[in-house]
């Protein structure tokens, strides 16, 4: 994709472009929105947003010429999230993200865009699923980058509060996750990240947390990841008490060759709460993969 619109003086246009694709995921028609930036022949970098949010979290990455020089950055909104549609018939079902469904979604989108062994980077639920991908589909990806990765997160609050008629679910979702930021996160990054959580469909954050707290448990299987086939990088903000540095280090203990970076002054949403600080840690990893 490439287009440069004419604009008035003083107006800056970001390089990313967004489109919709129609594809089948697990045999069901879906309409999925994605954005991308970077050269068509760049190393594909497929980015996965957090539970209950959407691809806007990666706008800093899409707008970073030091990334898009070598990488074709692709960010999609999961079905039910952001500008992607829920599937037909959604009114008659309860949304629940499963491990198999999540992996099918990612591989279907990578195949649809004909990505050649992309790097896949995900945060939170995305940081969990990349471990599953490294274990079950190492041949399809050239490296995985897990942000706020943990092997499992046991429920530490009652997620049924996120979808009740006597509670505004999306303002509550934002309030709930508002403590996952570093105290010195720039207000604009913190509140834009929270805005993502204030928007969305009823029950979607809760449905994602089914994967995060129950179905996505990968404890006991991490030793099967072969980092000689697929390098594993784990970057975790120090202020995240959900996918904490301790959780990441515990998971990494079971993945021989995994590289861990603990990021000071960052929380659960490093790519959106403070992108300038996050990139200090990400760029060396991307350079290493590019040179690998």
């Amino acid at each position: 994709m490439n287009a440069t619109p004419n604009t008035a003086d003083g107006v800056r246009v970001e390089p990313s472009l967004g489109r919709y694709m129609h594809l089948e995921i697990e045999g069901r028609p879906h309409r999925v929105y994605w954005e991308e930036a970077g050269p068509a022949d760049g190393i594909p970098l497929l980015c996965l947003h957090t539970a209950g949010a959407d691809g806007r979290q990666y706008r800093g990455l899409l707008d970073d010429p030091d990334v898009t020089r070598d990488y074709r950055v692709i960010v999609y909104d999961m079905p039910w999230h952001g500008k992607s549609s829920p599937p037909a018939g959604y009114r008659d079902e309860e949304y629940r993200l499963t491990t198999d469904g999540y992996m099918s979604q990612i591989t279907a989108i990578a195949d649809a865009l004909q990505l050649d062994r992309p790097v896949v980077m995900g945060c939170s639920i995305g940081g969990r699923i990349v471990l599953h991908l490294a274990l079950d589909h190492p041949e399809k990806f050239r490296a995985v980058i897990g942000l706020q990765s943990a092997a499992h997160t046991a429920p530490y609050y009652d997620i049924s509060w996120l979808n009740r008629p006597d509670v505004n679910g999306w303002e509550t979702a934002a309030a709930w996750i508002s403590g996952l930021f570093a105290p010195d996160a720039p207000p604009e990054g913190r509140w834009e990240s929270l805005w993502h959580y204030m928007q969305g469909g009823p029950g979607v954050f809760k449905g994602d947390l089914f994967f995060y707290t129950i179905d996505g448990d990968i404890r006991g299987r991490l030793g099967g990841i072969d980092t000689s086939k697929i390098p594993v990088y784990m970057l975790t903000g120090e202020y995240d008490y959900s996918g904490s540095p301790a959780d990441t280090k515990e998971a990494a203990k079971h993945i021989d060759g995994a590289e861990v970076t603990i990021m000071p002054g960052l929380g659960h949403f490093p790519m959106s709460e403070n992108y300038p600080r996050f990139r200090e840690h990400l760029l060396p990893v991307l350079a290493k993969i590019a040179n690998g």
């Binding site: 530490y156 609050y157 509060w161 006597d166 509670v167 505004n168 509550t172 709930w176 508002s178 403590g179 996952l180 930021f181 570093a182 105290p183 120090e238 202020y239 995240d240 008490y241 959900s242 904490s244 540095p245």
Partner: peptide, 27 residues
Amino acid sequence: KPGWQDIFGMQRHHGLTLEGELQPLIA
């Protein structure tokens, strides 16, 4: 310090409990 910045972080790691009729709190 990390883990002490939020009541739910303290609920997960430091023994904080929420008790009673919680709907007004959550809402």
